[in-house]
Design a protein around this nucleic acid. Structure first.
Length: 494
RNA sequence: CGGGGCGUAGCGCAGCCUGGUUAGCGCGCGUGAUUUGGGAUCACGAGGUCGGAGGUUCGAAUCCUCUCGCCCCGACCA
């Protein structure tokens, strides 16, 4: 691997869990596979939410809300969709409890539902049902709806943020008159996701189309943004699906066109989940813990006052208050750490683990000089510190620093990804890379679905996507030896 | 569901093999003092049905049986 940016040490999983614990992002819950999101972790999710929601609204989407429970029969209406989700559904069968033997509460057999309800694993079906009612004419199109919600998928194996039984996400659902419009919508959202990932989360994602094997259940085409984590594995951080008329046929989502003829709508769906928080942790975290890009950091700068005796304390706090006020006025999300029961050293570590981009140290020496010390989270140790920054210029200096950290994190992550993206010209070489350095393999690909299955079985690497930016041109498939212009990215993935 | 492992204080663990007074350690928590520019120190203190049930035994955290739960690897997946 290239120079270490994030810890790919003995146990990356352990590191990941420790970061989550130390930064107080989340913890396990009494319910298997579910996660308690603590306030700081939720603030991070809210930042993701705000960044995405702003982009959705800028492209004409509006928010709405649909039921948590979906009638079982709704799932039946799209064949591939059933197949994809049937294995991981939570099912509600009763609506009342009763006291049974030994005083234990049990579902009342008298209160069995005539039709079981599914706790939504995704909402295409129930939203499709509404869409069918809402859409009559071409004048009702396009219909651009988004929902912020929780969903439940009974996964066999879970990991905090990356895969939990219940998770928070947004799911967009749109309906269009034509295939071209719906495909355009799918790509508009893909670009919005990538824009957020790159510019807000500082994660250099690759936009691409999924292979048939990796496609969403019921979609004609699935597009995704793929990110590289600190151990070289891939993480699908957002998906956008063109659903064709599959769901429109299942739910009779139809409109009358200008010629007074009934037509099926072309629909799309797309989602980003709390998994994005996991991506941010794994893409940027280092040995000290979390590193947050300023654009989404709940706290962008923290002021740590330092004093020994009460007279010092008064002077330092007054100075710190002034700096705090100036930064608030400058629009910086700043926090003054007034805790007097922990030492400054403790606070330094505490905020570093939480990934706060900028730390402002204010002690008696700074009061004397009417200055502060600035420390940047992305550069460890003394090199990351600026001493004697005059108070007059603090707001400007902090803003510059935040901008520099934002671009610095993106640059580091991009360099890391590029250093760990390799090309191969044979399957042997492919296996060597996957078992050795890991990372992404980007190569020409003309294999079949079965070839893809074989590679997955033998190497655990999956076809992540066909990247949409293809500068390579025609070449030879590493697996089949055929000439092709199609390029694919393979990697082990979460 | 297959393969491995673990349940002892809020958290992390030792003790179990080879049964024996009052079950230990670290972190955290409470009180006090001294500290405070990189995770403070000392003193005192609170905190446990040893996952549960049954059995063996004079005696069980320790041995046996059953049971419940969790974690890791695999299959499923955002």
């Amino acid at each position: 691997m290239a120079e270490k940016i994030t810890p790919r040490n003995e146990d990356y999983s352990r590191w990941y869990l420790d970061v989550i614990r130390d930064a107080e992002l989340a913890e396990s819950s009494p319910v298997r596979g579910c996660m308690v999101i603590r306030p700081y972790g939720f603030a991070l999710w809210e930042a993701v939410r705000d960044g995405l929601d702003r982009r959705f609204k800028a492209t004409g989407h509006v928010n709405a809300y649909f039921p948590l429970f979906i009638p079982l029969s709704f799932f039946q209406k799209e064949a591939e969709h059933v197949e994809g989700f049937a294995k991981e559904c939570a099912v509600v069968t009763h609506h009342r409890l009763m006291t049974g033997e030994g005083g234990l509460l049990v579902p009342d057999p008298e209160a069995k539902l005539e039709e079981p309800l599914i706790v939504r694993p995704t909402s295409e079906t129930i939203i499709g049902h509404s869409f069918a009612n809402w859409i009559q004419s071409y004048r009702d199109l396009p219909l651009l709806i988004n929902q912020w919600a929780n969903v439940v998928r009974w996964e066999l194996r879970t990991r905090p943020f990356l895969r939990t039984t219940e998770f928070l996400w947004q799911e967009g659902h749109t309906a269009h008159a034509t295939e071209a419009e719906a495909v355009e919508e799918t790509l508009t959202i893909l670009h919005a996701y990538a824009d957020f990932a790159v510019n807000d989360a500082a994660i250099p994602v690759i936009k691409g189309r999924k292979s048939a094997r990796e496609r969403f259940a019921g979609a004609v085409d699935t597009y995704a943004i793929e990110a590289m984590m600190g151990n070289g594995w891939a993480l699908q951080a957002g998906t956008s699906h063109y659903l064709g008329t599959n769901f429109a046929r299942g739910f009779e989502i139809m409109y009358l066109d200008r010629n007074n003829e009934k037509q099926y709508c072309h629909t799309t769906s797309w989602g980003v989940s709390t998994r994005m928080v996991g991506a941010i942790i794994m893409a940027h975290g280092d040995d000290q813990g979390l590193r947050l890009p300023p654009a989404i950091a709940p706290v962008q700068a923290v002021i740590v006052p330092i004093w020994r005796k009460d007279p010092e304390r008064v002077a330092v706090m007054e100075h710190a208050d002034n700096v705090h006020t100036a930064l608030v006025a400058a629009g910086v999300r700043v926090r003054l750490d007034t805790r007097d029961d922990v030492s400054p050293g403790y606070k330094f570590n505490d905020w570093e683990m939480r990934g706060v981009p900028v730390r402002i140290e204010i002690g008696p020496r700074d009061v004397e000089q009417n200055a502060v010390v600035l420390a940047r989270r992305d550069v460890p140790g003394k090199e990351g510190k600026q001493f004697g920054v005059p108070v007059d210029g603090v707001a400007a200096a902090v803003r510059d620093l935040l901008a520099s950290i934002q671009s610095g994190l993106l640059r580091q992550a991009t360099e890391y990804r590029d250093a760990n993206t390799r090309s191969v010209s044979s399957y042997d070489e492919f296996k060597q890379v996957i078992d050795g350095d890991g990372g992404f393999i980007r190569a020409h690909w003309a294999g079949s679905d079965e070839d893809e299955d074989l590679i997955k079985e033998e190497t655990k690497a999956t076809l992540r996507c066909f990247p949409s930016d293809v500068p390579e041109g025609e070449g030879v498939c590493f697996f089949t030896g055929k000439r092709t212009s199609q390029v694919a990215i393979f990697a082990r993935a979460y």
